[in-house]
Simulated assay, not measured.
Amino acid sequence: MSSSNQDYLFWISVAHLVPQIGFVSSMLFGVILLFLTVYGASKIFGSYKYLLIAFTLLGMAFSTIEIIVFPNVHNYRAGFLFFSFKETFGITDIRYWNIPLAAYTFFSATISLLSVQFIYRYWAIFDNSKLKYFTGCYSLIWVGYCTFFGLQYALGTFFFLKLDEPAAYYLREEMLIRYHVNVTDLPSMALVAYDPFDGSVRWFNLMGIVSIFVIVNVQYSIMIYCGWSMHTQMEDKIKNFSENLKKHHKQFFKSLVMQITAPTLILFIPISIINFIPVFNFDISFPSGALLCSFTLYPAMDSMIVMYVVSDYKHAAKKAFRRAKAVFRDKSVSRVESTTINSHR
């Protein structure tokens, strides 16, 4: 794929258009979900309601950062470049212009929060007493948990994937051919697995991959353990619960499974390909940012999944619609009566 001299500017347009669609849809469905959660959700949600709110807000924030930074990725043989064509917030100092790109990678906090939701659902079924850790000052534990992994991901990319002279040398010609830009003129971070001068392994760069691998797999391990335990043992644990509570647990478990399936397909599989393929040094060249940008659709998908699966949201939506319809009807009647009175004067 690298023999052609074709440029990839079309894919830059795609990588910019998809986030804009993701931003609009995430804001629309996010606001609807927040409204229904705050004003229409059943009291049975308990403190889980705040996790749903936090997860939705974090997804909306991520969509906003995406259209501010507009990050792109390009894979070339034993390396990849994570870059942007924009000097975000007008940052021109080369020492700081990668900070917005690193801040974008804070999205790992979103997946950390999803693993926290699995922990909550797991304890709600198997050890209800531990739900106290989601109330009051204890809830700061989870804020710290998500912040820690978000910062680890961001700082890992910022320091381990710093564009140095060998990486710039290796990617310069490729970026000129594909995007007509000099790699050193862009806010960018890079991974080059092997030194282009002597062929030695660039271990410092590869530590960036190791950091990402560890962070992602910690979250997945938690979700797989909690999810599998709920799948195999939930029926026995909730057999004495009320029918309403049984339905509640089953619906939220189903929504969590769907919520983790979506980012796995549209984020972590593409990220794994982007991160690990340089190790094999294949003769490839492709605009991988076109794969990565699909994740911006996830916050909207997440909101739709919750509203579709959890029946409380359907009931709340119907109730809100009836109220809005009644208010509109009352205003229409009042307007007609006012017009009639004025016509008889």
Rank of each mutant, 00 (worst) to 15 (best):
S13A: 14
S13D: 15
V14S: 01
P19R: 02
Q20G: 00
L28R: 07
I32R: 08
L34C: 10
L34K: 13
L36P: 06
Y39R: 14
Y39F: 09
A41V: 05
G46D: 01
S47C: 11
Y48V: 05
Y48L: 12
Y50H: 09
I53G: 09
F55I: 08
M60V: 09
S63H: 00
E66P: 01
I67V: 08
V69E: 04
N75A: 15
L81E: 08
F83M: 03
K86H: 15
F89S: 12
I91D: 07
D93P: 06
N98H: 07
L101D: 01
T105A: 13
I111Y: 14
V116C: 06
Y120R: 07
D127A: 12
K132Y: 10
Y133N: 12
F134H: 05
L140Q: 07
G144H: 06
Y145N: 02
F148P: 01
Q152K: 14
L155T: 07
D164M: 08
E165A: 15
E165W: 10
Y170F: 02
M175R: 06
R178C: 06
H180Y: 10
T184A: 15
D185I: 00
L186W: 05
L191H: 06
V192C: 04
F197R: 03
D198K: 02
G199A: 04
V201A: 13
R202G: 02
N205G: 02
L206V: 04
V214Q: 04
V218Q: 05
T232G: 10
N244S: 14
K246I: 01
K250M: 06
F252G: 07
F253H: 08
S255M: 08
I260E: 02
P263D: 04
C293K: 02
M301Y: 10
D302H: 11
I305D: 01
V310M: 09
V310Y: 05
A317P: 03
F321H: 14
R322L: 14
S332V: 15
V336G: 00
T339A: 15
T340A: 13
S343G: 00
R345V: 14
R345N: 13
